[in-house]
């Protein structure tokens, strides 16, 4: 209001205000144009049931394992060479040598590769445990059916990551497991032989198979997994997480049935009076 008297702000107050604007202005700018700040705020401060328990951290644990795979995978891709060609100096395949180089020569290379290798198993185990939790809680039921399906697809994609990644060290274990794996794909009717041919990139498993698996392993399947995880999380935030179904104060639980009370008139329910007396006036203790 024009009539309100305001004293002139001090220099310190002006400086303080400028500092605040420095932080709030970009945030407001972003919020006005994208609504992202509001989204993050909603994500952080949305309510979850008060009785959620430790089993419900398995999903975010699996996400953490996936992030470990993504980060270590990016680092490995900087040093790994997907080539089945023979190194003329040593007589060993280039891909195999790059794996040995990463593991034995690079500073902390063993840690990055070790985390990627064992992180894969941890990721798979956590996805299975998370699925078991969702099953136990009956959390795949209405309205979360779609999210169950998305989750199963992420699990399948994760196992495909395992299959394609297993070949990359290009050692005997990798090679022969993949020979058998691809031949098994080939036994499927109709699409089988075509799929086997596509995966091999020819009649026999060789350099083309390796580059193909590398591309699938680090571009196609991870891209699909990231998309599916985004959808999965969106649905989790939209629909909320369930309470443990055995919880005494589970969210959404039906109010207690009144049936048992009716069997014991006068104890918990007012006894209906035959005369005009209303139920409101009945003594809780009953007088029969």
């Amino acid at each position: 209001m024009a009539t309100t008297y305001r004293r002139k702000p001090t220099k310190a107050e002006i400086r303080r205000q400028r500092m605040e604007e420095l932080v709030t202005y970009p945030l407001d700018w972003l919020e006005e144009r994208s609504g992202l700040i509001g989204g993050v705020r909603y994500f952080l401060f949305r309510n979850v049931p008060a009785d959620i328990n430790w089993m419900q951290t398995l999903g975010s644990a699996a996400l953490t394992a996936f992030l470990v795979q993504a980060i270590t995978g990016v680092i490995l891709a900087m040093y790994y060479v997907p080539s089945a060609a023979t190194d003329p100096h040593t007589g060993n395949p280039v891909a195999w040598e790059s794996i040995v180089h990463i593991t034995d020569d690079l500073t902390l290379g063993w840690l990055v590769r070790g985390m990627h290798r064992w992180g894969a198993s941890v990721f798979i185990i956590l996805m299975f445990l998370h699925m078991g939790r969702v099953f136990l809680f009956g959390a795949y039921k209405y309205p979360r059916e779609l999210n169950w399906i998305v989750g199963v697809l992420i699990l399948v994609m994760g196992m495909m990551e395992g299959f394609t990644g297993y070949l990359l060290p290009w050692d005997q274990t990798a090679y022969w497991a993949t020979v058998v794996g691809i031949n098994l794909n080939g036994t499927a009717p109709f699409l089988g032989p075509w799929l086997a041919q596509f995966l091999r990139g020819g009649q026999e498993i060789g350099g083309e198979t390796l580059t193909r698996f590398y591309s699938l392993h680090m571009l196609v399947i991870p891209g699909a997994i990231i998309g599916l995880i985004t959808l999965h999380l969106y649905l989790v935030i939209r629909l909320g997480v369930t309470s443990p179904p055995w919880s005494k104060e589970a969210a959404g639980m039906e109010p207690e049935e009144e049936e048992p009370a009716r069997l014991r008139p006068g104890l918990t329910r007012p006894v209906p009076r035959p005369s005009g007396a209303s139920a409101m006036q009945a003594e809780p203790g009953g007088q029969e």
Binding site: P93, V100, T103, D171, A174, Y175, I205
Partner: peptide
């Protein structure tokens, strides 16, 4: 937990 790597692939 197994070797770092097995012998190089040899078709």
């Amino acid at each position: 937990l197994g070797a770092e790597v097995a012998a190089p692939a040899d078709p």
